[in-house]
Nucleic acid binder design. Structure first.
Lengths: 161, 161
DNA sequence: CCCTAACATGAAGTTGGCTTCAACTGTCAG
DNA sequence: CTGACAGTTGAAGCCAACTTCATGTTAGGG
């Protein structure tokens, strides 16, 4: 360790696998916090690496940075998160993964019948219209979890500003 | 049917659930083709609806429009696609769904050990670093199928155009 | 023949998630 | 103390996938 055990943005980037620009970007968004030297340079605590691991994992399962921020906000701001803190978050993810797997499995099983009929019917095809929910009356398809959903949510609500 | 059985962009939009702007956009990308009236207005064949169903389904399973275009290019340009044509595409999707499900399941199973240890270790955590492949030597995580991958692929290859 | 809803085009805007750039400034081994 | 390397900021750029807008044209029922 140098004078302290704090890490520069470069070290953080190298060790986490994120680009420096991404690390700075995340700090700007408040996903990370950093002390500053007298000269204004960032100095990250070691636990930042764990936070970044969390972020990467969250992105891998399809969470947006907003969702990540929300999840991270449940972690203690000051103290280093305990094992229990991380466990709580992990459990929430497990749910999300279960949801995604379930959605995809349903899609796949629906697809089997598509292959059988060669249809891709707008009205009935399970994959184009997951679980027949999409146009079932609600305001747009809401079957897939957000991370997997790519349908007319934008079309349905034109300007989500 | 009016004079012919061709559909205007408005009708296509209404029946497919896509916005008119999206339909025009897709035509611009070459995902759809349209005849033109003497006055320059688009007239779509009925099979366009099926094509759009395909597009929506593809988006739902995480394909980009580029990938959709690639898939669609395997369809006959002129004639109306046969049931066998669609079946072939559907089967390819089934593979993709299988891949996605497998990736997520692996992630989830890895997560179980995370919950056990509360770790989120950069080196070992299965969810942040799926299947311990990510930093195994290659240039970035390549475990998840493209549609689910949200890691440093961009960092690894800055401008994937 | 007229009127209006529907259509056309191209440019610009939007969102999320970063990257790149320019122009400086800080850090620290030697 | 100095020189090279690492760090700083804000603004701008980029990509996908569309949407929105302004302005002008067409289709077709009455």
């Amino acid at each position: 360790m140098r004078t302290t055990d704090l890490l520069t943005v470069g070290e953080i980037a190298r060790r986490s696998g994120f680009a420096e620009s991404a690390v700075r970007y995340y700090e700007g968004l408040g996903l990370l916090s950093a002390a500053r030297t007298a000269g204004g340079q960032r100095r990250f605590e070691r636990s930042t690496l764990r936070r970044l691991a969390f972020i990467r994992a969250a992105r891998n399962v399809g969470l947006s940075l907003n969702e990540v921020a929300e999840a991270l906000s449940s972690l203690p701001a000051g103290r280093t998160p305990t094992r229990a803190d991380w466990s709580r978050l992990s459990r929430a993810w497990r749910q999300r993964l279960d949801d995604q797997i379930e959605a995809l499995t349903a899609l796949r099983d629906g697809l089997d019948s598509c292959i059988g009929c060669g249809c891709l019917s707008l009205q009935r095809c399970a994959i184009s219209n997951p679980a027949d929910i999409a146009r079932g009356g609600g305001p747009g398809a809401v079957y897939l979890p957000t991370g997997l959903r790519r349908d007319d949510s934008r079309l349905a609500s034109p300007s989500p500003r």
